[in-house]
Design a protein around this nucleic acid. Structure first.
Lengths: 173, 173
DNA sequence: CCGATTCGTTTCAACCTTGAAGTTTTCATG
DNA sequence: CATGAAAACTTCAAGGTTGAAACGAATCGG
């Protein structure tokens, strides 16, 4: 509640941009969730975890790295990984050097699951968001996303969520 | 699973744009929720309902209109309105002409709540998303949002979620 | 008019997320 | 070393969301 004295309302253009972002924010997760659930029995977050592991070296990653990358709370990640482990798509074991950490490793079945799920997911992303966009629009989405990541993550640096190529002029942190 | 034979993967630029959108999608709701919860004891969806009512004629609106505007499931809206009614911020009564419908009406206390919450919310939207954006970026967000709304809502028309000014070249529906 | 169907909403059970508290391991310091 | 603090997860309870089923009100066809 400790705002500045006079709130700076949004201009016409700013409001329209905000409405556009709300449309993406409200609509995309639901649709992508629905597609994955329908075609693969996964939700978007679980898919993200599997996909992230499939691209990691050795197909394994520490819980804390996964959490940072997805900006998820520890318990959310713990639950998701628990679900995926129960399905046999990954295993958990303590980290060799630092036994506080848990390392999640994708199983062969988990890798197959990602491979089977990815095309449908990519097609949906394309259909709902990418197809029909101009070069300039794609660049704007990249830059705005990087800016949002910086603003939200602040000192924790956008590195965790954005790949280097999209970070733009982020202060080195 | 009934994809086309060969999946069309995303190009480099498309992937970066997608990563940018995921950053908005994952990060913004959480931060906006947190600000509202901290400063006003509201979540983003409840705030949206109150705000929508405060701008409606007579400060009242039918449940089905609210649901369409926010793309929420009926039960989600019912729960939200139930919470807000329990707080005394709105009342429910059957629609005069069509008694199947329920009309939600903002109370004076509810209106005061919106007025008290709006500046902090607007400031956060500004801080995380709007400030520092160019005219071109704002326009891109508006257009992409409109396009997503069309793609997701399909035949149901984007009208429900996007205001006319942002709908762009939507087919009349 | 009367039965069948559709419409708008609510309710319910299953599931997911959140934030707080608890556990185990590691690190820093006296 | 020993002890306190920090880090990395897990667990738990409270609350929110989803999709299906249920319910009353309105509409449509005969």
């Amino acid at each position: 509640m400790d705002d500045d004295a006079q709130p700076r309302w949004l201009s016409e253009e700013e409001q329209l941009a905000w409405v556009g972002v709300t449309a993406m924010m409200w609509l995309l997760p639901g649709s992508l969730d629905a597609q994955l659930h329908r075609d693969s029995g996964l939700n978007l977050f679980d898919y993200f975890v599997l996909s992230s592991l499939s691209q990691a070296e050795g197909r394994q990653r520490r819980m804390s790295d996964l959490a940072a990358q997805s900006n998820a709370s520890p318990s959310r990640l713990s639950n998701a990984v628990g679900r995926l482990e129960a399905q046999g798509w990954l295993t958990r074991h303590p980290h060799e050097q630092d036994r506080r950490s848990t390392v999640a490793t994708l199983t062969d079945a988990g890798y197959d699951k990602v491979v089977a799920s990815a095309p449908g997911h990519a097609a949906e992303v394309r259909r709902l968001l990418i197809d029909g966009r101009s070069e300039a629009e794609l660049a704007a989405l990249r830059d705005v996303g990087a800016s949002v990541a910086r603003a939200v993550l602040g000192e924790r640096c956008a590195e965790t969520v954005m790949p280097p190529a999209a970070r733009g002029d982020a202060p080195d942190c």
